[in-house]
Write a protein that binds this DNA or RNA. Sequence first.
DNA 1: CGCTTAATTGACCATAATCAACCAGGGTGG
DNA 2: CCACCCTGGTTGATTATGGTCAATTAAGCG
Lengths: 251, 251
Amino acid sequence: MPLLAARRLEVALISPLIEKLSRRDFISEEEKAVLADVVAPPVTLKAGQNIVEQYDRPSRSTLLLDGFAARYVVLMNGARQITELNVPGDFVDLHSLLMSPMDHGVVCLTDCKVGYCPHEALRFISQTQPHLTRLLWLETLIDAAVHRQWLAGLGRRTAFGRFAHFLCEVYLRLASVERAEGHRMELPLSQAILADVLGLSAVHVNRSVAQLRADGLVEWSGRMIRILDWDRLVRVAEFDPTYLRLGRDPV
Amino acid sequence: MPLLAARRLEVALISPLIEKLSRRDFISEEEKAVLADVVAPPVTLKAGQNIVEQYDRPSRSTLLLDGFAARYVVLMNGARQITELNVPGDFVDLHSLLMSPMDHGVVCLTDCKVGYCPHEALRFISQTQPHLTRLLWLETLIDAAVHRQWLAGLGRRTAFGRFAHFLCEVYLRLASVERAEGHRMELPLSQAILADVLGLSAVHVNRSVAQLRADGLVEWSGRMIRILDWDRLVRVAEFDPTYLRLGRDPV
DNA sequence: CGCTTAATTGACCATAATCAACCAGGGTGG
DNA sequence: CCACCCTGGTTGATTATGGTCAATTAAGCG
């Protein structure tokens, strides 16, 4: 296979990442190739499998290519708090490049396709590609920004407002990697998982879903969600997408 | 003044930062000088002043040299959630280098001495100093790790456990910049501010302090806190300092 | 079609919020 | 110098958001 064709194939593999980054900044063909070169051939993991566990010292970072994953912290009593939902295009543990051992675990919430990126290669990028390094850095900054919004939600919003906010966030993040459109999305997460996302009990998640339905905000059957009134959902969520950094703003 | 002496003076100015970084990794004299060069002569801000406000697009980042500051998100109803407490040596808005507008505000909780760092200079570091860049990146990664612990606290811990955890964290962070030792620290924060930290009402903060005292965990009079039983505090907090990345671990 | 997981509902309980006083200390103006 | 005031801390009574427990129904799935 000619070199260029092979390269196009590799770049296609990491398209959710490229797509996301390209919305923010201009990524040169060379940079795309450098990025694609870092990613090993994809692997499929089963729902429930851990991508990394707390206290691991991984020698690679993991790029999520398909499926849903989550970062989580578990307490001694077994309670789990999910601190971020990850969607295709997300580096789920990019920070392990500089920060090990892991301060939290990452689990596949559905079957996932992932591409491993050896730290060695990522470190080389950090030595030789300042612009790409800043883009990767920015990815981790957005994680932190998401954390902050969730903190505000857990600390100062009601369960209902927090839920609405979460739905707005997930929708935009999925839409930005072509996994959602027309205010419809597939979110194959059980209410028990949503409970760990929202810091609630499963029972209360169920009641909140009922409330969202009763208020005519969403249609929610199985794994498909349709947001019936986006503007109103945004209003009750007090949602402001600034923190997701979806717009163009070169670094 | 001879050049070397001037340089030593500049480096001394940012000693809390240098100290913190040096605990993790070897920082060369050249790197120290480069860092010190970035920081403008310090400025003193009054308690209550904002260092940056949400939606600002600062053209500089702020290094906290003395005092306490906090990042916060405010909701429409006026509720405020503090998402991180900042102590001397912290870059309170380093991420604004890559991520603007600001997704949150930063306020001085006490009078603060700060040193501004023009983005231009920080960007130059990111172009020319890969190791220093990784160290700065790591600073923002630790912010995210702190956020995650707080998320677990808000989502899954009781008010009491969360409070205990917070005290452990603050103590270690202060100790790591020589602002605390012997399990004693000065924490000049009102209970109303602590309420915004812990996602509680001021009244409940007061009750939690009473509980901490009653349990013989802390002695708390005015702004001085003495931790009477560190081991037990760590146990009730389920505190594990890994996420603070205080140990040696070169990047 | 049986089995297992997930969703749903109701009854009751607990943690923490809210509302409302009251108190202590420290700074200030008369 | 001292009364006053303002902020911050403390306490009690009541409410409410959301948790727990337990049972029932629905939905996938082999």
